[in-house]
Design a protein around this nucleic acid. Structure first.
Lengths: 131, 131
DNA sequence: CTTGACCCTGTACTATGGTACGGGGTATAA
DNA sequence: TTATACCCCGTACCATAGTACAGGGTCAAG
C-alpha cells in the first residue's frame, strides 16, 4: 500500500507533464523526494499535492499564491482565518472582474444595437466612447 | 484646447509608463503619431485609447483581443454587418468569461463558508482539504 | 548484453506584457 | 553656454507558467 512512484507515474496520476513536476520542484511548490539510484521516488501523497496546485490555479491563484497556501498548511500556528482571508480577497477580485465585464458587455451591446441601424455611420458609434 | 502631448505627458495622463506607450505602438495597438523634430506628438484622444487598452486588459482580454476590440471602432470602411458580427463574437467571449468567473466564485465561496470558525487551528480546518 | 523506455541535469525556448538600459539627440531655462 | 530634463532607437532583461531538447545515465525484458 505504501507504493512509491517514479516521476512519470506521478505526473500521469496527477494529470500533468513530467516537466511540470520538475518545474514545481524548482519553484519550491513540492519538495524533492528521496532518490533511489538517482531516480526520484514519490510517496503517493504527492498526487494530491499536485492536484491541489492545479485546483488552486483553476480558482485563480498564481503559483506564488498557491505556494503561500501550501506553506500555511504546514504552519501549525496558522489559523483558518488566514486562509479565509486570502479566499475572501480572491472572491473580491473575482467580483470586481465580473462587474467590469458586465459593463463591457453593456457597451458592446450598445455598439451592436447601433450597428444594426445600417444607416448610421460607424464613426457615430465608437466603442471607445462607451467607456 | 487642441494641445498635443509628448510621449511623457501622454504616459502620465494615461497612467502608464513611457515604455508601455512605445510598446503598444510596436504592437500596433496605437498608431504612430506625427513627429515634430523627431519627437512624437499625440492628440489628446490617445489618452482614452490607452486607458481603454488598460481597462480591457483588466477584464481579461489579451492585447491581441484588445486590438480586435479597438478595430471595431476604427475600421470605418468595414461593413456594418462585419462589425456587428465581431461585436457579437466579443459579447459571447465576455459572457464566457463571466460564466467562468462565476464558477470560480462559487467554488471560493464554498471554501469560505466551510471555515467560519476563525480561531480553529489550520490543522483542524477543512478548507484546504476541499480545494 | 543489448534494446528501449524511462530517468537525470542543465539550458534554451515559447508567449504575454511589459521594464530597463546603453548611447545618443533635443529643448528649454538660468 | 551648459545643465537638466526630456526624447530617440534598439536590444536585453524581468516574471509567469510552463515546454523542449541535448547529452547523458539506469533498469527490466528478451
Amino acid at each position: 500500500m505504501k507504493e512509491k512512484l517514479t516521476i512519470g507515474k506521478l505526473a500521469q496520476k496527477a494529470n500533468v507533464g513530467v516537466e511540470t513536476v520538475r518545474f514545481y520542484e524548482r519553484k519550491g511548490l513540492i519538495k524533492q523526494p528521496s532518490k533511489q539510484g538517482g531516480f526520484r521516488h514519490y510517496p503517493e501523497d504527492y498526487i494530491s499535492r499536485i492536484k491541489f496546485i492545479k485546483r488552486s490555479q483553476e480558482l485563480g491563484f498564481t503559483l506564488n499564491e498557491t505556494s503561500e497556501l501550501l506553506e500555511l498548511k504546514l504552519d501549525s500556528s496558522a489559523k483558518c482565518s488566514d486562509v479565509l482571508e486570502r479566499t475572501q480577497a480572491k472572491i473580491d477580485e473575482v467580483n470586481e472582474k465580473i462587474e467590469d465585464l458586465k459593463k463591457m458587455k453593456k457597451s458592446l451591446k450598445r455598439l451592436a444595437v447601433c450597428c444594426e441601424d445600417t444607416d448610421v455611420s460607424l464613426s457615430e458609434c465608437p466603442i471607445l466612447d462607451h467607456f
